[in-house]
Design a binder for these strands. Structure first.
Lengths: 166, 166
DNA sequence: GAATAATAATTAGTAGTCTAATCATTACAG
DNA sequence: CTGTAATGATTAGACTACTAATTATTATTC
């Protein structure tokens, strides 16, 4: 097998690992990975719009709507049509949503973060730049992907309100 | 942003790049990435079963059935129930399927393969082992992922017929 | 040889993801 | 002010992907 094929094997393993994590999350915490990421975003910026979320987490608006629908049907979020601009819909966590968020583990396997953080600095850098380089080579340079955002901050800094335009 | 978060950003970029490639493929060649991979597998082993494909390309049997349905409705494959063991269904490319396969580009962007292959050996190795290490850390060690298989071989070595059991 | 296991394929149901199209509303231009 | 842009959200339609359940068939066991 060629090197680049082996590379793809590993990439697909990573993709599956992420998928598996998401399903596990869904079973244990009642929310999937993407749902969790969006909940975190709503926690970070109160009254954020779907558009803003979609920019921040770098998913299409349609995907965000889709996920919001599910979160809403679980009563984890509220949609409030804006009065000043009736095209916009402001998004808020419900108490249930906050609860779910607090009880949910990280979207990434904790053990991964631990293991990774325990590596020497240059090793971390090594891994990171390898992956970045591959992303680059795959023409992914133009793509903006979202970080898997940090939890915390349920009630702090919701002042990052005004990022209307990119 | 933390290192491991940056890492995830890059991983997600890669995932999206693969997705984008698949959609492009679908538009230009009439088959998506996964469909192409499965077509290649059918080309490699004539009369392969869905079970075998699912093991080889490392997707669940249900997913394979799903993709086969689409390939069948495009008349790219034929399903033939085995006489000797009526649980099994042997899979074959139709002439149309072979045609599609020959005209389709690689599931991976050619430019990637070129760029990657042009790297020095130790660099390739470097990238590969970084990704492998990450896969490992993500608990993906138990996961068996398929290579994105090589085309070619439309009429050669179909002697790898007898891998019934893993 | 009949009951039980295992195996192969499929179906049912859920999710994420995208593009393109639609709808409502606001902004802008003349 | 009225008609055309642009913008934000949603809907429609495809596809991948999974687990669990079902169906049909073969293998095994008593």
């Amino acid at each position: 097998m060629e090197r680049h094929e082996e590379l793809f094997v590993s990439i697909r393993k990573i993709i599956r690992a992420i998928d598996i994590r998401s399903r596990k999350l869904s079973k244990e915490a009642g929310v999937t990975g993407p749902q969790l990421i969006i909940l975190q975003e709503l926690a970070r910026i109160k009254g954020v719009t779907a558009k803003e979320v979609s920019t921040q987490v770098n998913l299409s608006q349609a995907t965000v709507t889709n996920i919001l629908d599910r979160l809403e049907s679980k009563h984890f979020i509220k949609r409030v049509r804006s009065e000043s601009d009736r095209r916009r819909v402001a998004l808020f966590l419900t108490d249930e949503g906050k609860e779910a968020l607090l009880n949910a583990p990280q979207p990434i396997e904790e053990s991964f973060v631990e293991t990774f953080s325990a590596l020497k600095d240059w090793e971390q850098f090594q891994l990171l730049s390898s992956v970045e380089r591959i992303a680059e080579m795959m023409g992914a340079s133009g793509i903006d992907a979202a970080p898997v955002l940090n939890l915390g901050d349920l009630d702090s800094h919701n002042q990052a309100q005004d990022n209307k335009n990119d």
